[in-house]
């Protein structure tokens, strides 16, 4: 171990364990059993940090398994930076826009609308989907990089809404793309959209594979 000697061995565990206060503690196994606890790594000098942290991570992976360590970290970063595609189909788009305004401020949840599907990992279908626009919607969905999620916002996207029997309307966007969260309402208020996004974050938290 670079730089660490027996004299610098970790002291007795601090009464205040930083992992306990974090909400992540149950899903992100901290290096309590590792060769060098993280709290010690913080105290190291810079030239010692890299080899020490490398060793800590290596031993942690060997101990916990790669998937068990990487997956929670991946889920944590993913669900706290959901980037929805910035587009609108119908009146739900007005509520969508309001949710990103000053009053509801979706950005405090890390939700930032992106104008390109290649930068987005969440598609919020906010409005009536017609058969004319269906293949464009599928194209946009396929352009998004994995992992990706879909929220059907409002009654039209959920099941066709009042236009269910119309000649031109897709009766629910789940006929076209897999939907993770449905939001009822016509249109749903911005609070409902934010609630749907938080429900999706809960889904991502429980994601295993």
């Amino acid at each position: 171990m670079g730089g660490l000697t027996a004299a610098q061995a970790p002291p007795a565990p601090s009464p205040r364990n930083p992992t306990v206060d974090l909400q992540l503690s149950n899903e992100l196994p901290m290096a309590t059993q590792a060769a060098v606890p993280f709290i010690e790594i913080e105290a190291l000098r810079a030239k010692e940090f890299i080899p020490a942290s490398k060793e800590a991570l290596t031993s942690l992976i060997a101990e916990q398994g790669q998937a068990k360590l990487i997956r929670p970290m991946f889920n944590w970063s993913g669900r706290n930076s959901l980037f929805p595609l910035h587009w609108g189909l119908a009146c739900c788009a007005i509520e969508f826009a309001a949710a990103f305004g000053a009053r509801w401020d979706a950005e405090r949840f890390g939700v930032v609308a992106r104008s390109s599907p290649r930068q987005a990992d969440l598609m919020i279908v906010n409005g009536t989907v017609t058969w004319k626009v269906a293949h464009k919607l599928i194209t946009l969905y396929e352009q998004m990089a994995e992992p990706k999620w879909v929220i059907a916002m409002g009654n039209c996207a959920t099941g066709g809404g009042p236009f269910r029997t119309a000649y031109s309307v897709v009766p629910g966007v789940d006929k076209l793309v897999p939907v993770d969260v449905y939001i009822a309402g016509c249109p749903p208020r911005p609070e409902a959209l934010l609630d749907g996004i938080l429900k999706l974050e809960q889904l991502i938290r429980e994601r295993k594979e």
Binding site: R164, T165, Y167, P171
Partner: peptide
């Protein structure tokens, strides 16, 4: 769809 002979379809049939 705007012909009088057009019947309202079940969504699944139309799909």
């Amino acid at each position: 769809p705007l012909l009088r002979s057009f019947k309202i379809h079940e969504p699944e049939e139309l799909e």
